[in-house]
Write a protein that binds this DNA or RNA. Structure first.
Length: 442
RNA sequence: GCGAGUAUGGUGAAGGGGUUAACACGGCGGAUUGUGGUUCCGUUAUGCUAGGGUUCGAAUCCCUAUACUCGCCCCA
């Protein structure tokens, strides 16, 4: 035993049991289905890219967290998000793509940072973006929340709220306070408000040596209360004289107004001036989404508008808007909070247990079941007890037992594993009997 | 990158220097050679992350390494 290698999985890498994997895949499929229902195209890009491409814009953090290695003379890296590969993709195929370019991409990304609760080194991102050529209609800023809305409705994991803000409002506001030079630090602090609370925000702002009167103004500003309409009106009526600020307010006003016409429930979205988001490239509308019943989970989906996607690869101006769902973290959190129903995730609808060597007879049944779209598992084990136990552990709702006695009578036994009821079926009525029993139970 | 903590079978774990490492779950075999999720019986770590030290004696105390967990930074 000593010379065996311990079969372990690296920290920060999620590996699931089959039952869990089914659930995970269900969530992934729901997201994918909603994305494509809005007319977005799927793309896939390599997990490995040349470091030169991936690190073209390289902030300090990215460089620290990226998995980078050499193979021969090649300097390679694992992608750490799906946005940079998108930028490369669009820049290199600019002449062939149709704009506005609507794509989604679901795939694994890698970050070489220390793993923590709900923080992974390999995780799925589910990205969706629209990229415009030179310009991009603000209507796409409205479409994005609508997509989020549909996804979280379909995921069926409880009530949720999409929080919306516009970076121009914050930028303009801080410009008017003459704090432009520290805007990155301030936004970072404000963004943490949900986590650390308003008092700590104030404290950290004091640490930045911002005058108290300005801190009061900031706190008052970001905690504006009221309905969406009231908040907009307060912003429109404010005495802040700043062009960027006004532009932001108008954009936000436009987005909020149009969300109504997209048939979204007003309880599921709100203006939240504390959302700062992605301190790098977001320039306009920004979004975060939280589960109302589980605020401690933090944002489960976030994104926004950016002016220029691919400035490191091309001179073309490519504005875009999009979101990303961190599916691995979301799934992890949903499991931790017992929001997902982990029961009854058998792949097969029916498990067939052959107690005979006359497989030809068995396969006739199997073919019939599969032809009708029933997922049918056939098990080959020596003993009936093992067969039954297999079906039991797989939580298959139904089993079919076929032994030599049944073959003699030209039947099979359909067993409902929940009720224990057994019915004799023939090849002609097996599907009907199955469906009848299934419907009776419901 | 910085800080704190933990390390015992497939899993959850007890044992805090004294001869065979508790208990539970799971697994396997059987009671029950055509019927599971109940019950009963048997079985399941020559070893306590690795290496070194203290000791007559170490899973237990000390040191080093590694891994893992949790914070911070940052982020999905």
């Amino acid at each position: 035993m000593k010379d065996k290698v311990v079969p372990r999985t690296l920290s920060g890498f999620m590996e699931l049991m089959p039952q869990e994997q089914i659930l995970f895949n269900k969530l992934k499929k729901i997201i994918e289905d909603v994305y494509s229902s809005y007319g977005f195209y799927p793309i896939d890009t390599p997990v490995i890219e040349s470091s030169e491409v991936l690190l073209a814009k390289a902030g300090g953090e990215t460089e620290k967290q990226i998995y980078r290695f050499n193979k021969g003379d090649n300097d390679l890296s694992l992608r750490f998000d799906l946005t940079v590969p998108l930028a490369k993709y669009v820049a290199s195929r600019y002449n062939d793509l149709i704009f506005p370019f609507k794509r989604y991409q679901i795939g694994k990304v890698f970050r070489g940072e220390r793993a923590q609760k709900g923080r992974f080194r390999e995780f799925y991102q589910c990205d969706i973006d629209v990229i415009g050529n030179e310009t991009l209609s603000l209507m796409y800023d409205c479409e994005i929340p609508s997509i989020i809305y549909d996804i979280f409705k379909n995921l069926n994991i409880g009530d949720f709220i999409i929080r919306i803000n516009n970076r121009k409002i914050l930028s303009g506001f801080f410009e008017s306070l003459d704090l432009t030079n520290m805007i990155t630090e301030i936004l970072r602090i404000i963004d943490k408000i949900d986590k650390i609370g308003i008092d700590n925000v104030r404290e950290e702002l004091i640490n930045l040596k911002i005058p108290t009167d300005k801190i009061d103004k900031i706190i008052n500003f970001i905690t504006i209360e009221g309905t969406n309409e009231e908040k907009i009106n307060k912003l429109l009526e404010s005495d802040i004289k700043n062009d960027i600020f006004n532009e932001g307010v108008n954009e936000l006003n436009f987005v909020i107004k149009n969300l109504k016409s997209l048939n979204m429930n007003e309880n599921n979205y709100e203006i939240d001036l504390t959302i700062a988001r992605g301190l790098d490239y977001y320039t306009g509308t920004v979004y975060e989404t939280n589960l109302k019943d589980y605020p401690s989970l933090g944002s489960v989906c976030s994104g926004g508008r950016y002016d220029n996607l691919a400035s490191y690869y091309t001179d073309k101006k490519l504005p875009g808007v999009g979101i990303s769902i961190g599916l691995t973290r979301l799934f992890y959190q949903l499991c931790e909070s017992n929001i997902l129903n982990k029961e009854e995730n058998s792949v097969a609808d029916i498990t067939v247990l052959p107690l005979t060597y006359n497989y030809e007879y068995v396969f006739n049944f199997v073919r019939e079941l599969r032809k009708k779209g029933l997922k049918t598992d056939v098990v080959y084990l020596d003993k009936l007890k093992q067969l039954i136990k297999y079906a039991d552990r797989q939580k298959t709702p139904y089993v079919i037992i076929i032994g030599d006695d049944e073959i003699q009578k030209e039947i099979a036994i359909l067993k409902n594993m929940k009720t224990g009821k057994q019915i004799e079926v023939t090849i002609n009525n097996v599907v009907d009997v199955y469906e009848q029993d299934l419907n009776n139970k419901m």
